[in-house]
């Protein structure tokens, strides 16, 4: 995945069957963000693979004050890259 400066990883083991996964997102390179992130804590959240989109979560993070509106695309892309990787792995394990 391209380095957006925002890191997203699984917050717990993915057994490949759950439709809701726990993810953790944090800023690794604040210089890549347009706005100034609130603090450099890691943000844990759950993501429903079938129902939700990365853009939903990114927008909620903006509205919760974690990021500047100008960074919604970077945040959404970082989440989308990680979710795509998880789904790709799942298809390889259980085609």
């Amino acid at each position: 995945a391209e380095d957006t400066g925002v890191r997203v990883e699984l917050a717990e083991e993915d057994n490949g069957r759950k439709s809701t996964i726990a993810l953790r997102l944090w800023v690794e390179d604040p210089k890549k963000l347009k706005g100034k992130p609130k603090d450099n804590g890691a943000i844990e959240f759950t993501f429903e693979l079938e129902k939700e989109t990365p853009e939903d979560v990114a927008q909620e993070m903006i509205e919760s004050g974690f990021f500047n509106e100008s960074d919604v695309k970077i945040v959404a892309k970082s989440i989308r890259d990680r979710v795509a990787l998880i789904q790709w792995r799942r298809e390889r394990i259980r085609p």
Partner: peptide
Amino acid sequence: GLHAQVVHSAGRRFIVSPVPESRLREP
């Protein structure tokens, strides 16, 4: 550590925890 929690109006819970020390120093 103290885990701050923010619950968005749509109901999603965001839990803020310190970034894992090992990840910060990655090149």
